[in-house]
Each structure stands twice: as C-alpha cells, then as structure tokens.
Nucleic acid binder design. Structure first.
Lengths: 122, 122
DNA sequence: GGTAGAACGTACCAAAATGTAAGTGTGAGT
DNA sequence: ACTCACACTTACATTTTGGTACGTTCTACC
C-alpha cells in the first residue's frame, strides 16, 4: 500500500495554492518584500478584495508574512517565509512547463472555444 | 516589460490542471490505461458527472486519450499522452512538497478551522 | 424477471470563488 | 481645497464549479 497512493500529496498542495491567483501571487513575491499595491499591479487583473483574501489565507498558512510598517498612510509588505519558498520551488517546474507549452495550450484552448468547434476531423 | 513577467507560465499550467480534481486524476493515471469506473474508485469522492467533465477537458487538451473498446457493456479507458506525461512530471515536485508538509499544513488548517479560533498563543 | 454494473447524458441546485462598487481614514501633491 | 494613493473592509451580484438524482442501453448473473 505505498505504490504511489497514500494520497499523492497533491491534495495538500492544492489546499494551499488552490484558487485562481495564489500561484501567481507567490510567483510575484519572489523578489522579496512587496507592498500590497505593488503585488496587485504585478499580478494584474485581480481585484483588491480577492487579493486581500488570498494574502490573508497565505499568511494564515505560514507561506507569507505580513509586515505592517505602522505608518500612515499605510505601508504594508508581504514576504515569502522559508516555508513559502519551498513551495515556490515546488511550482517552478509547473511554471516552466507552462512556458514550454504555452503555444500548444493556447492553440488548443482557442480551437476549443471556436464557435464552429471543429475540434477534430468530422 | 520582461523582468519576470511575460506571465510566468503558471497561468498556462493552471488553465490545464485547474479545478479540484484534475491533478488527482492525472496522478492516478500514471499506471497506464485506466477505465472510467476504476479512475472513479481511485480518486474517490468524485461524482460521475464531474469526472466525466474533467476527463473530457483533459482529452480536449491532449493530455489524455480516450479509448473506446466498442464493446457492450461499455469498456473505455483513458491514458496519458506523452504530452500528459510531461505535465505529470511537472507536478511531481508539488506532490512531494505536499507529502513532505502534510503534517504542518493539516495542522494549520485544523487550527484555522477550530471553532474557538485561537489562532495564536492563548 | 429483477438487479447490478458498465460509461455515459441531462436537469436542476447549492456552494464556492471571483468580481464590482463603494466606503474608511489620513497625509502628500497640486 | 481637492484629489489621489495607501491598505484595507463591506455589501452585493455574478460566474464558475461541484454535486445529486435520474435516465439510457445492454449484458451477465441469480
């Protein structure tokens, strides 16, 4: 009972980076401490509300630390914890895979969405 | 405009393995051709409808191939394509990460969900 | 004959995730 | 004075996702 079962661990990872944005967020935090608004700009397309949620969850999971500079107007930044860095490392291959196959995937998605949907021959 | 942007590739991967079940499904297909009902049993907890959806999407993305044995009662199996295998390889690290940190993640989730929510010391 | 199981399809629903728009308080720039 | 940016929060609307339940066609089994 150890073939590759035991629940492959994917479930664990997924529970941490689940959602549409978390992987992207983590990715954009690799440069070091980053401010809220800067993350928002980098990720692009994410709303403040959702970004906040995700950040809070990530912080709760000890993947990030939040540093409030106690200034006004507010200055807060988020940083990957060592734990978070291991996670980022783990998704590097996925990132590379995505880059390597961007064309193919994009193309496939395109034709899947094409109105006359000729996905195959007939 | 190419610092590390260009979209890190994660968006591509995510568009393929997005969703609650796809990674799990792929994982359980590593053994080779697997029948629908067998996948369902292995993954566990997934409904027929959703499994069907996911499989169809995966097939559409050329990650899997569907083989209908043209028998009755129906015999159909799904297999990873070479392309699919590269994807599976890419999520191996995530899988390992999950296994390595299962305890911590589980614990964190547990206390986050605890009714009296003592997230910190006291 | 009735039942079970194979691999689906479909209708309808509930829940989760995401998005939108607005508001908060304060200080710096114009 | 007015506006903007900061880091959020809240209420609300919408979209996406997942789930339940049932139907189908056919065969093997009791």
């Amino acid at each position: 009972m150890d073939r590759l079962t035991t629940q492959c661990g994917l479930d664990v990872s997924l529970s941490v980076i689940g959602g549409k944005w978390k992987p992207l967020i983590l990715y954009h935090l690799q440069d070091g401490p980053t401010r809220f608004s800067e993350i928002r700009r980098r990720v692009g397309g994410i709303s403040e509300k959702v970004l906040m949620q995700q950040l809070r969850e990530l912080v709760a999971m000890d993947v990030l630390v939040r540093h409030d500079h106690q200034q006004v107007p507010p200055v807060v930044d988020y940083t990957l914890t060592p734990f978070g860095k291991t996670l980022v490392q783990a998704l590097v291959p996925l990132c590379e895979w995505g880059n390597r196959h961007r064309a193919q995937v994009t193309e496939t998605l395109r034709r899947a969405a094409s109105p006359d949907g000729r996905t195959r021959s007939a």
